[in-house]
Computed example of a mutant assay.
Amino acid sequence: MSVGNPRHQRHVSLRILLAGLAALIMILPFVIMLSTSFKPQTFVLEMPPELIPSEPTTRNYREAWSGNSFAKYFANSLYVALSTTFVVLLLSSMMAYAFARFDFLGKRIVFVVLLAGLMIPGIITIVPAFVLAKNLNLLDSLNGLTVFYSGGMVAFMTFLLRGFFEKIPLALDEAMTIDGAGPVRRFFHLYLPLSRPALATAAIFTFLGAWDEFVWALTVINDPEKRTLPVAIAALQGQRATEWGLVFAASAIAVIPVIVVYVFAQRQFIAGVTAGAVKD
Rank of each mutant, 00 (worst) to 15 (best):
G182L: 06
L160F: 12
S92D: 13
E225A: 10
F148C: 07
P40M: 08
D179M: 08
L90Y: 09
G106L: 13
N68G: 06
K72S: 14
G144W: 08
V131D: 10
N143A: 12
V255M: 13
G209M: 14
W211E: 02
P169R: 05
L208R: 03
L89A: 10
V273N: 02
V273T: 09
I109W: 14
V127E: 04
L136T: 01
G67C: 09
N5G: 02
A275Y: 13
P29E: 05
M119V: 11
Y61C: 03
D212P: 00
L218N: 08
S93N: 04
A171V: 11
A203P: 07
L199F: 08
P56K: 04
P183V: 08
A250I: 01
Y97L: 11
L170M: 11
I168H: 01
T36P: 07
S251Q: 00
S13A: 15
N135H: 09
E225Q: 07
L190W: 12
R162Y: 07
A198V: 08
G20C: 13
D140W: 02
T242A: 12
R108S: 15
V147G: 03
Q266E: 14
L170G: 14
F214Q: 03
E46D: 13
P230I: 05
T42A: 13
L145A: 05
F187W: 11
F159G: 03
T206M: 07
F130V: 04
I126H: 03
R267E: 15
T85M: 12
V261D: 02
P48W: 10
M157F: 09
A171T: 12
V184R: 01
E166Y: 01
Q266L: 13
L21M: 13
V273A: 03
N137A: 14
M157T: 06
G4P: 04
F205C: 06
F38E: 04
T84W: 03
R15D: 12
P53Q: 10
G182K: 04
T58P: 14
A155N: 08
A250F: 04
A96N: 02
V278A: 12
F38T: 09
L21K: 00
K39R: 15
A235F: 07
F99N: 00
